[in-house]
């Protein structure tokens, strides 16, 4: 009982720091994208945004071990112990990778690992979609449909995260150009178009995790 309440509590706190942390990231990115500020200010705000963004990034990764531990403790998936250990090892290793990518400045060194991280997200998204669909159809491995739906929503948030990475690629290039050559209306347009696309996916994540939270509390019979 004590362990269960601790895990539920951690699960709630992950949601708190994910969605709440994202608010600051989202709002401060407007300043980073604004041509009204000098480049040093925009660079610093980019750094602040990136640092605050580690809260949502960390919580998203930890949702895997914490979420599946909760599933196991509530007997919503009768999984062997080794699988729980695997989820924890996977989650912690992935978290270490996410933080390493954040702290490492050497772009060349980072590039293969960033690609690996992206592939990992594709695989995880696919695996979770399969989990949820087989559960919705055959009640396996997850025994409750509301939980299968929650997992599907989580998989979709991972997909949105992938889409953010893809949509900000032109942004990163344009921002580097602003730093190097200074601002111009053309580059600013590129920045804002790219940021607008990314914002759409960020908002989708907010909606998805909010619905997931509602389903987690509600536990509807589907």
């Amino acid at each position: 009982m004590f362990l269960e309440s601790i895990i539920v509590w951690l699960h709630v706190l992950l949601f708190v720091y994910w969605l709440g942390g994202d608010l600051g990231v989202f709002y401060s990115s407007r300043f980073r994208n604004s041509a009204n500020y000098d480049i040093q200010t925009r660079q610093l705000i980019a750094r602040i945004t990136s640092n605050i963004d580690m809260a949502p990034k960390t919580t998203m990764v930890l949702m895997i071990p914490i979420g599946f531990s909760l599933v196991a403790i509530k007997n919503l998936w009768l999984m062997p112990d080794w699988l729980i250990i695997f989820f924890w090892l996977f989650g912690l290793a992935w978290l270490a990778l996410v933080w390493w990518l954040h702290l490492t400045k050497d772009a060349k060194k980072k590039a293969p690992w960033a690609k690996f991280d992206l592939i990992l997200r594709y695989i995880l998204c696919a695996v979770l979609v399969i989990f949820s669909i087989t559960s919705l159809l055959y009640q396996y491995p997850l025994v409750e449909n509301w939980l299968a739906l929650k997992v599907l929503l989580f998989a979709l948030t991972i997909f949105c995260g992938i889409m953010i990475r893809i949509s900000v690629k032109p942004y990163i290039l344009a921002f580097a150009k602003v730093i190097q050559d200074g601002s111009s209306p053309e580059i600013e347009k590129q920045l804002n178009e790219s940021a607008a696309k990314a914002r759409m996916w960020v908002k989708a994540i907010w909606v998805l995790i909010s619905i997931a939270a509602l389903i987690g509390i509600w536990k509807p019979i589907i």
Binding site: L19, G20, L23, S28, A55
Partner: peptide, 23 residues
């Protein structure tokens, strides 16, 4: 759900306030 969201926008949003103040 409102109670949970209040915590989200209190504790979660405070990260930005706190980190921003250090800058």
């Amino acid at each position: 759900i409102l109670h949970v969201f209040i915590l989200v926008y209190w504790l979660g949003a405070d990260i930005t306030v706190f980190y921003g103040s250090t800058q």
